[in-house]
Write a protein that binds this DNA or RNA. Structure first.
Lengths: 230, 230
DNA sequence: GACGTCGCTGAGAACACGCTGAGGAATCGT
DNA sequence: ACGATTCCTCAGCGTGTTCTCAGCGACGTC
């Protein structure tokens, strides 16, 4: 159990201080944290569907937290969202929850409450690990239909191949070692050799190649594999 | 959506005035409301599992809201619960959410916020167990008449076959594993093997085939089954 | 340029998965 | 009581999938 794939949280706030504080706190809880400072970049990051939860401030430059949430839901992204508002406006609360938010916090909030809300939200979406759509470049992984498409063309994958691709895509951008992948995809049992990962990456590449996405899975020699949006 | 069964909400509060107000308000929303004034009776009512949501005050005579919630979860009752507290104690919120609450309100709260939380909670749990007709492509499932048609032709199904098809259709677009289906259609108590699902999918397909809908139930090897409109 | 390490791939054996026909037990309707 | 219906188990078959192995090429280092 070296570097497990942790819970991934996206923190969106325009104040750098708040971002830093939340990032540090959540990391201490053992979560992977990614931050964004404005609406558009929050939307861009969130729509990849690779997060387990979003912490979304309402007051944002570019695109309000409301709009970000609204857009995400429209696009079928069902990642749990906790809205954060600066002042206790009741109407705001109502609107936010109706838009599909899963929780609500009013500044200033204590870290204890934040952690509790996060846990509640994660418990609900449970081992399910969010049933939305993962998008990466032209690649689409529909987790509820268990279907993979690239530029519209569906790619038929075996269960193992699918699990591997999903795991790689969920860690989008980061390099996953073969041991990481063995633990995540093959389970904690030491039943399989490392070579099986290479074999299955090969299978994946061949099938992705057939639809023009051959170079999505990149080898990082000596370290592992990585999927990129290019 | 013909003969809809209303959403049933259990309201628990020791103050008669609060109970009355909430009852009137929620009824106006078209919900069925049952009230309880103390912990033990709340527990007795809630454990029947016939409610779509619980509105649970924390300060209660006999048994605190916490304990009621705790007991329910221990007993496997997963009805969504919104906790109501008299004062804004942070620790309370944290504890409550960790105990398995689905929402949290602080008195005094506006009805708008309450309604929003309720809706959010109901949306999540799919409290939308609408009766009526499910349509999928040429397929029609009349749930009140327990009748299935395809392009006008009725399909005679046994109870099990019907339950299976209905469950599959309700999850339209998503892949349901055999274990999902066993739990939903056969019930948790059953010690049925997974093969029975395969057998019944076979029965279904044969009957649907006879009216030209043979390819509606798709096998996703290694994952489960899925009904598609195509 | 030689060597060891690392990653890729084709072949093939073992296995798991899903489908089906047969049949037994229980229940229902007449 | 009788057949019809329903529910479920079982065993067998075909096929897809998983995984190991061995060989080979690519890469980096000295």
């Amino acid at each position: 159990m070296l570097s497990r794939v942790n819970t991934r949280v996206l923190v969106v706030d325009d104040e750098a201080g708040v971002r830093k504080a939340l990032e540090r706190g959540l990391r201490a809880e053992g979560m992977d944290v990614v931050t964004a400072a404005d609406g558009p970049s929050a939307l861009r990051l969130a729509r990849t569907g690779t997060f387990d939860a979003l912490l979304l401030d309402i007051m944002l430059p570019g695109l309000s937290g409301y709009r970000v949430l609204q857009r995400l839901r429209e696009e079928g992204v069902r990642t749990p969202v906790i809205l954060v508002s600066a002042k206790d406006g009741e109407i705001d609360q109502a609107d936010g929850l109706d838009l599909g938010a899963d929780g609500y916090l009013v500044k200033p909030f204590s870290f204890v409450v934040l952690r509790a809300q996060l846990r509640a939200v994660l418990r609900r979406t449970g081992g399910d690990r969010a049933r939305g759509v993962v998008r990466l470049g032209g690649l689409e992984i529909d987790r509820s239909a268990r279907e993979v498409r690239f530029d519209g063309a569906t790619v038929a994958l075996s269960p193992r191949e699918y699990a591997l691709l999903e795991t790689l895509a969920r860690g989008a951008g980061t390099v996953l070692t073969k041991d990481d992948l063995l633990a995540e995809v093959w389970g904690d049992e030491r039943a399989a050799t490392r070579n099986v990962v290479e074999v299955y990456v090969g299978y994946l590449r061949r099938k992705l190649d057939a639809v023009g996405a051959g170079d999505m899975v990149r080898t990082v020699r000596g370290h592992g594999y990585q999927v990129t949006s290019g």
